[in-house]
Simulated scan of single mutants.
Amino acid sequence: MEHFLTTIPVWLVYILVGVVVMVESFGIPVPGEIVLVTAALMSSKHELAVSPHSVAIAGVLGAVIGDSIGYWVGREYGFKIFDILKRRFPSHFNDDTIAYAEHIFDRYGMFAVFFGRFVALLRIFAGPLSGVLKMHYPRFLIANVAGAICWAGGTTYAVYYLGKAAEKYLSTFSYVALGIAVILAFAAGKFMGQAIDRRVEAYAEQRRADGTHPDVA
């Protein structure tokens, strides 16, 4: 990904960050976080002209716009949108993941929108599901913008300053160390994803016990 981004004009890097994050945010499972982190890592290298501020702005705008599109699509088409996504992306969308996400967003509302920005599965669901559940749009927008700023902005500047520190203090091994740090960050994300998978399965088992799961209904 980094090699590809270094072969295109700087302005196109920002557009790519915004577009990929936007597409992920309105419900399509693309690697928005990977693109954001890679661009932020590039911005920490003094020999490249990538600006961390522009990366952060692109990420925030992409997240807010994408979630808003997802919200209005979900509000307009209801659960039909998830039927389409299940057919298109069966490995990411199924009855159990949708039911669990609906449970989380129905129970926690704005907090689910805000904190869901930091979890890949919930990040994809945030916009469409909030629309399906008819969350009041101003409340959704507040949580959406706040989550986008903290996630996209926070991720960008954390990676940027980590890269700068590595370059200054670790000399030859700077980007090796930074690469290890990024790998550890993705490993933490993977661990969190596995924890979400366990919660999805536990909620599915609860629904089976209650007789509300499609397998037993």
Rank of each mutant, 00 (worst) to 15 (best):
M1A: 06
F4I: 05
T6D: 02
T6A: 03
T7I: 00
I8P: 12
I8K: 04
I8Q: 07
P9G: 11
W11E: 14
L12I: 11
Y14G: 06
V17G: 00
G18E: 08
G18W: 01
G18N: 04
M22P: 06
V23P: 04
E24I: 07
E24T: 02
F26T: 00
F26N: 04
V30G: 11
I34L: 15
V37T: 12
T38I: 03
A39M: 07
L41A: 15
S43M: 05
K45G: 04
E47S: 13
E47W: 09
V50G: 10
S51A: 07
S51F: 04
P52Q: 06
H53P: 00
S54E: 13
S54W: 15
V55I: 09
G62W: 04
A63Y: 02
V64H: 10
I65M: 10
I65D: 03
S68A: 11
I69C: 05
I69T: 07
G70S: 08
G70W: 11
G70C: 09
G70E: 11
W72L: 03
E76T: 15
F79L: 12
K80M: 09
D83V: 00
R88H: 08
F89A: 08
P90V: 00
S91M: 13
S91N: 14
S91W: 05
F93H: 03
F93L: 03
F93T: 06
F93Q: 02
N94Q: 12
N94C: 10
D95E: 15
I98D: 06
Y100L: 11
A101F: 09
E102P: 09
H103N: 10
H103S: 12
H103E: 12
I104D: 08
D106F: 01
G109K: 13
M110E: 14
F114S: 01
F114Q: 01
G116M: 08
R117A: 09
L121S: 05
L121M: 15
L121R: 02
L122A: 09
I124V: 15
A126P: 06
P128V: 07
P128R: 13
S130N: 01
G131C: 09
L133S: 01
L133Y: 02
M135A: 00
M135Y: 14
H136Y: 14
A143S: 13
G147S: 07
A148G: 12
I149R: 06
A152C: 14
G154A: 05
T155V: 15
T156S: 13
V159D: 01
G163C: 06
K164D: 13
A166R: 03
K168I: 06
Y169S: 11
L170A: 13
L170W: 12
S171I: 10
T172Q: 14
F173K: 11
S174N: 15
S174E: 06
Y175G: 03
V176N: 09
V176H: 13
A177M: 14
L178M: 14
A185P: 00
A185G: 15
A187C: 01
A187E: 06
A187T: 07
A188D: 00
M192W: 03
Q194N: 14
D197M: 08
R198W: 08
R199N: 14
R199M: 15
E201L: 14
E201S: 10
A204Q: 12
Q206Y: 09
R207S: 09
T212D: 11
H213Y: 12
P214S: 11
P214R: 06
D215F: 04
